[in-house]
């Protein structure tokens, strides 16, 4: 038994040696978990998400919705006016985005100054 144990231990060492190269396959998961704990990756703040979805919705729905609203209810019959309103709404969304981006950057600079 003792000799067998020795043999087994040596074989176990061998298997450990064999499993050593295989260990990195397991390690990255642990490292990834540690990394996620240390640096929780894209921890997106809620205000950024609100901005993102707000502008996406405004860009998707705003102009074309205003077009149909204008042509069907506000100025029925005049499609060109509705199209002009849609273009204006698209540019209003752009200007709002520029203003929001500028204000966000100013706030971060102020935070850095503090």
């Amino acid at each position: 038994m003792a000799t067998r144990r020795n043999v087994k231990s040596s074989s176990a060492e061998k298997t450990e040696d064999a499993s050593a190269p295989a260990a990195p396959a397991v390690l990255p998961r642990a490292m990834q978990a540690e990394k996620m704990k240390q640096n929780p990756g894209p921890a997106i703040p809620s205000d950024v998400l609100v901005k993102l979805f707000g502008f996406t919705l405004a860009m998707l729905v705003g102009p074309i919705g205003c077009y149909y609203l204008a042509t069907n209810y506000v100025f029925p019959g005049s499609t060109v006016l509705g199209a002009a309103i849609a273009a204006v709404v698209a540019n209003v969304v752009l200007i709002a985005f520029v203003i929001v981006a500028m204000r966000e950057d100013d706030g971060e600079e102020k935070k850095k100054d503090k």
Partner: peptide
């Protein structure tokens, strides 16, 4: 931290898509 400010060309490109969409809807309505 510059990503939000740098997204302006993407928004402007989206507006170009809106322009062509509006004209297409306008033409198709006639």
């Amino acid at each position: 931290e510059l990503i939000m400010k740098s997204l302006i060309p993407v928004v402007m490109s989206g507006i170009l898509g809106v322009y062509s969409l509006v004209v297409s809807v306008l033409i198709a309505g006639d």
